[in-house]
Design a protein around this nucleic acid. Structure first.
Lengths: 230, 230
DNA sequence: CGCGAGCTTGACGTTGTTCAACTAGAGTGG
DNA sequence: CCACTCTAGTTGAACAACGTCAAGCTCGCG
């Protein structure tokens, strides 16, 4: 976790889409203020329940967002990738983090003070509009997660997770997992053992190929069917 | 489902809080355009998957918002009460309803065109700010729901629902349910039978009194404990 | 080569669903 | 006014899905 040097927001290639509606002066204001940080895999970016002062924009790596529970297993409610920022519902409500963020891979992120963010919302209607759109997308993802976890059984849930990973995280049918089996389990709301058994079944049925952390979806159509039928 | 006459938004007592940041001209613009509608208990206000043109503000009654699933049971993701409006994440994304809304009691609502709403967001920063705060609250509710349903067993989940109803819907420890047992089950992500058994247990343990649809929480402290321990 | 963390597998137990039967109350038509 | 029906609620028994537990495995690393 060390501060690193990086280019200005104005020319940054890893800038989140949300900043596209900002003019050069606004971007410069963000740039002056931002803090760029490197996290090693496994390091905590922020903890559930702690105050939130910063918006976190991911410029490289992969971050898991999960709900902690002392009595029970954790549950991953989302992943954040480069060109994404981490949505923070608490930033407008109780100024607390609702969930914990941990780097799954080595990750770099820019921290942007929420004051600046709030100012931009108030002064730039397009930024506000894009922000609302992003929050809406996030709500839809949460609703999808509720639907998946409550209305489907293990195979359907695991199918959802594999589809999500290939479409929204790795952008390929074939990918090398940087999440552990425990993470997959937490993401699909089941135990590690159930996750492993579900994947084993998919492998036996030739729906995926699975060698260690290398996954290839061989039959996306069947996987979709399993996802649909629960 | 008939159009009814009602007072202007400017003096309306049942107006949603979100409108507090509007000036008289803005309120008048909303007023000119709004459509007031009465729904009988059980009537559908809008269906999951259909286009959304209106924001729905509840002025009386109670509305359940739920995810439909042909293979599986429905799941209620929220309730909307007077002085609330129904959040619609689709209004900024795909212009489709993500869930179905059905009146649990006789309900009146004002429909407000989303165009007006979008204009207000763009022209009135305070309105935008309040809207973002409301969406944030909604996200937190969804996260809480995920936490409740995935990290707790039936008793914990039912405790959550009873606490939610008393604190956020009926505003009393003693209330007459206008939701069916099936609704309670859908709200806590379990079957009707499990819901009934959980309530029966609470009754036996003197945590609640239960006569038909009349519920009184006798031991809120114990109920909180059950909620915490899952 | 040995250690340890994460992964894998099987046996078993628990939770909660499913199914089927029964009850109570509300509405309907003879 | 009384059967009749229909729906929501209730209960018990059987069953399936999934979690728990314990043991063994693999692979990277010192």
């Amino acid at each position: 976790m060390a501060k690193i040097i990086s280019t200005s927001c104005i020319v940054c290639q890893n800038r989140s889409d949300i900043f596209n509606s900002l003019g050069p002066e606004e971007l410069e204001a963000v740039n002056c203020q931002r803090i760029s940080v490197h996290y090693n895999a496994g390091e905590v970016i922020f903890k559930q329940g702690t105050p939130c002062y910063y918006f976190v924009c991911i410029t490289s790596g992969l971050v898991k967002l999960y709900l902690e529970n002392e009595n029970s297993h954790n549950i991953i409610i989302g992943l954040a990738r480069p060109v994404d920022y981490i949505f923070m519902p608490g930033a407008y409500v109780n100024y607390r983090h609702q969930f914990t963020a941990v780097a799954c891979e080595d990750t770099t992120a820019c921290l942007i003070e929420s004051d600046i963010w709030h100012d931009l919302i108030k002064t730039n209607p397009n930024f506000a509009n894009d922000f609302i759109r992003k929050m809406s997308l996030q709500s839809i993802e949460l609703i999808d997660k509720i639907s998946s976890i409550t209305q489907k059984q293990v195979f359907g849930r695991m199918a959802d997770v594999l589809i999500y990973l290939s479409k929204n995280i790795y952008f390929q049918d074939s990918f090398t997992l940087t999440l552990s089996r425990q993470d997959l389990a937490d993401f699909s709301g089941m135990t590690k053992e159930s996750a492993i058994r579900a994947m084993k079944k998919f492998k036996e049925d030739q729906i995926i190929s699975l060698k260690g952390n290398n996954i290839e979806i061989l039959n996306p159509f069947l996987l979709e069917t399993i996802s649909k039928n629960g």
